[in-house]
């Protein structure tokens, strides 16, 4: 039992690495994608729109397999499995985050931009100090949903052979002819997501000082 838990903690560590690295890359990338989607240049916005359609319109598991195997067929060499997972997750989640950002940015009243403009704020200052702080507050509930989904999506990484928590649990279940490890993994996921939910609650409460 002790050995099983050790293995599962190792698997959890891999899942958490996927989780945090995905967020690290997809959160800023999503902002770039959102900007592209809102671009006034028709070519840029439709290209970015196509990318979002593909990312949201096909299964993540398929994208994962594509990112891992496509370079092999095209260039004859492939990236390592873990890197492929991070790339696939980052570009997939960036598409979802981008749409959330876009909704947030477009929900800020035009008057805020006009006030900033009349006061002589630069475009950058307006974006970083007027728009984004208000966007962050508005998108928190939607972001919470997405981040919780990401915790559970880390389980897909096993598709290309990355030994994250769920793969470890399945291996143990097969070895011991028992479903117990899988249920224990369920508890692990639940605890991780309880922490995510609590964190979002905390942030939302922190941002509750204005309306």
């Amino acid at each position: 039992m002790g050995k099983l838990l050790m293995l599962m903690l190792e698997g959890t560590f891999t899942s958490l690495r996927i989780f945090f690295l995905t967020l690290l890359f997809s959160l800023p990338l999503g902002l770039v994608v959102a900007k592209g989607r809102m671009s006034r240049h028709r070519i840029i916005s439709s290209l970015v729109n196509g990318y979002i359609m593909i990312m949201r319109g096909t299964p993540l598991i398929l994208q994962l397999i594509f990112v891992y195997f496509a370079p092999y067929y095209i260039f004859g060499s492939s990236t390592d499995r873990f890197t492929a997972v991070i790339i696939a997750y980052a570009i997939n989640y960036a598409a979802y985050f981008a749409e959330i950002y876009r909704g947030g940015i477009q929900s800020i009243p035009q008057g805020q931009l006009e006030a900033a403009s009349v006061l002589g704020f630069t475009k950058v200052h307006t974006f970083t100090h007027v728009i984004m702080p208000q966007v962050v507050k508005r998108i928190m509930p939607a972001m919470g949903n997405e981040v919780i989904t990401l915790v559970k999506d880390t389980a897909l990484a096993q598709t290309i052979g990355v030994a994250e928590l769920f793969r470890v649990a399945q291996n143990a279940a097969a070895r011991e002819f028992s479903t117990m490890p899988i249920f224990i993994a369920g508890i692990f996921y639940f605890v991780m997501n309880a922490i995510v939910s609590k964190s979002f609650d905390l942030i939302e409460r922190k941002l509750d000082y204005y309306r």
Partner: peptide, 15 residues
């Protein structure tokens, strides 16, 4: 900057 503007809807920065 020589001209200030007061809006109908105030447009204060809520945050």
């Amino acid at each position: 900057l020589r001209v200030g503007l007061v809006f109908q809807n105030f447009n204060l920065f809520p945050h």
